[in-house]
Amino acid sequence: MAFKNYRKETSERSDEANWAKKILIEKTGLFFDSIEGCNENKDNIVTHLMERARIDFSDEKSTDEEVLKEIIKLETLDTLQRKINFAKSFNCPLTYVLYCNENKHVWVYTK
């Protein structure tokens, strides 16, 4: 596999330690899933919801199945499905952006 060392980077860096989020889930069963980015057109209509992960990259090719498996490890299947469903409620896809700073490469996956 060419993509390795997937790292979830988010603007909400303290998400793992968010005690309020944990209590919300425990007490109410509600989820507080954050989505990294949103794109809107000139009419202020959402066109894409985006997530991202930083990766290490070698000059080989990863299969779509390998990439999906790694994204599920980052997100968990339930969280990823909730994000896909949320994007569908806006009639748009969830786009996952993988990037490698060192090689200055970007890959886009859409579901």
Score class of each variant (00 low, 15 high):
M1G: 15
M1Q: 10
M1C: 13
A2K: 03
F3T: 00
F3W: 02
K4S: 14
N5F: 07
N5Y: 11
Y6F: 15
Y6L: 10
Y6E: 03
R7L: 12
R7I: 13
T10A: 06
S11N: 14
E12H: 07
E12A: 10
E12P: 01
R13E: 14
R13N: 13
S14M: 09
S14E: 13
E16C: 05
E16S: 06
E16Q: 07
A17R: 02
N18Q: 05
W19A: 00
W19D: 00
A20F: 05
K21M: 02
K21R: 15
I23E: 10
L24V: 01
L24P: 00
I25H: 07
I25S: 08
I25N: 07
E26N: 07
E26C: 01
E26H: 03
K27E: 11
L30S: 04
F31V: 04
E36Y: 08
E36K: 07
G37N: 09
D43Q: 10
D43N: 13
D43K: 10
D43S: 13
N44R: 12
N44F: 09
I45T: 13
I45R: 07
V46R: 02
V46C: 14
V46A: 09
T47N: 04
T47Y: 03
T47V: 12
H48K: 12
L49W: 03
L49S: 02
M50S: 11
M50F: 06
R52Q: 13
A53M: 12
D56W: 03
F57P: 00
S58Q: 06
S58M: 05
D59M: 09
D59E: 12
E60P: 02
E60C: 10
K61E: 13
T63Y: 12
D64L: 08
E66L: 09
E66Q: 12
V67Q: 01
L68S: 10
L68W: 06
L68E: 08
K69E: 15
K69R: 12
K69W: 05
E70Q: 14
I71E: 04
I72F: 08
I72C: 05
I72Y: 02
K73T: 10
L74Q: 11
L74R: 08
L74V: 05
T76M: 08
Q81E: 15
R82H: 11
N85M: 10
N85T: 12
N85S: 14
F86E: 03
A87L: 06
S89M: 13
S89G: 11
S89Q: 12
F90G: 04
F90C: 10
F90L: 13
N91D: 15
C92P: 05
C92L: 11
C92Q: 03
C92D: 11
C92A: 13
P93K: 08
L94G: 01
T95M: 08
Y96C: 04
Y96F: 14
Y96Q: 01
L98N: 04
C100H: 04
N103S: 15
K104W: 06
H105S: 14
H105D: 15
H105E: 15
V106G: 02
V108N: 04
Y109A: 05
Y109W: 07
Y109M: 05
T110V: 10
K111E: 11
